[in-house]
Design a protein around this nucleic acid. Sequence first.
DNA 1: GTCTATAGAAGGATAGAC
DNA 2: GTCTATCCTTCTATAGAC
Lengths: 211, 211
Amino acid sequence: MSAIDPVRPEAGSPKRQLILDAAAILFTAHGYGAVSMDAIARSAGVSKATLYAHFGSKDQLFATIITEACHAMFDWPGAMSADGADLRTALIALGQRVLRFFLEDGTLALYRVVVAESARFPELGRAFYESGPATGRRLLGAWLAEQAGAGRLRVPDPPLAAEQFVALLRAGLYFRATLGVPPAPTQAEIDTTVAAAVDIFLAAYAHPRAG
Amino acid sequence: MSAIDPVRPEAGSPKRQLILDAAAILFTAHGYGAVSMDAIARSAGVSKATLYAHFGSKDQLFATIITEACHAMFDWPGAMSADGADLRTALIALGQRVLRFFLEDGTLALYRVVVAESARFPELGRAFYESGPATGRRLLGAWLAEQAGAGRLRVPDPPLAAEQFVALLRAGLYFRATLGVPPAPTQAEIDTTVAAAVDIFLAAYAHPRAG
DNA sequence: GTCTATAGAAGGATAGAC
DNA sequence: GTCTATCCTTCTATAGAC
């Protein structure tokens, strides 16, 4: 498997991992243009020549790092587990996890970099979209279809409903957080946003026969 | 008025306007880091020294341009006019205008630049947030409150409902467009998204007594 | 105010020794 | 593979003439 994957360094080179770690931190924190190869080499504790021996160019290193980060960042199965309790409680818990994940520093930082550079590195946009929104829509859509099958929801288009639920979670706080406009979101605001999203979602999609 | 505003060049210098126009196009198209002062000077047809005579530094020029663009880009009063017809028709027309505006090349390009540089230029994030999301929420919230006053809606929190309506418009297409992931949104997709947003919005907020 | 020319610094990438 | 030292380009910003 590792013989095919062009990214994995045969898991053998320790310096390579140092470079990957340092570059990931710097690139996500400051963006492509603001990070020099000198800074990465310094931060990783290696020479620039070593850096170029592992990755042919700054573009290549950047694309490798960010693409990998997009695949690694999202943990949808964890966020999508919502069983047991009644539907509203399950949706609240699920919305809390998803929205809090959206608002994490690391998530926002990666999103900013990908948005900024998606024009010059189209593969970044694709990797983020597939790992994030597309996968989330699939998993949440499947869960909603399941609930519909159990008679708790009436959802004609599960993927669309999934998109709408997640979009409602982004109402209010998300732009402020993405643009770095103070004040930082509070837990109370998160609670309010999630509750409002669940309310409107259930008003539209709750099965009439269920509560 | 123009004596107070630090941005306006007393409307006197023709070269200054050339610089502003050229810089606006280049910065929004390629971002801060990828645009050099040489390129701006060349594109504006002036020398670099002239450029520095009008704007003290690249940072200053960039912040001026982008802040101005944020204020100028949004034309909410136009987008928010929705009178006459019945509520659903009005919301559909309003949603169409807003979503199409979101998906315009210029809007997306400006958003990408602001997201990318909001960490290093906090005033950009603030300017965009105030001119865009905050103003839109105020205007649409007022319109919704008006509709509620006329008995066509039941909206306990108009600004929140406004945020939710706009968030629903961003479901589906918006990430794809922001990240530049093909295929480009079609008019049919826009129609579907807007209709779905209006449906769920009215299911939650339509007054029971109105149709 | 506007130009030409250039200073001075920083960045990406490589040569050559080990 | 890894280092040191360096090349070459590009960039921001300025000096000085007009």
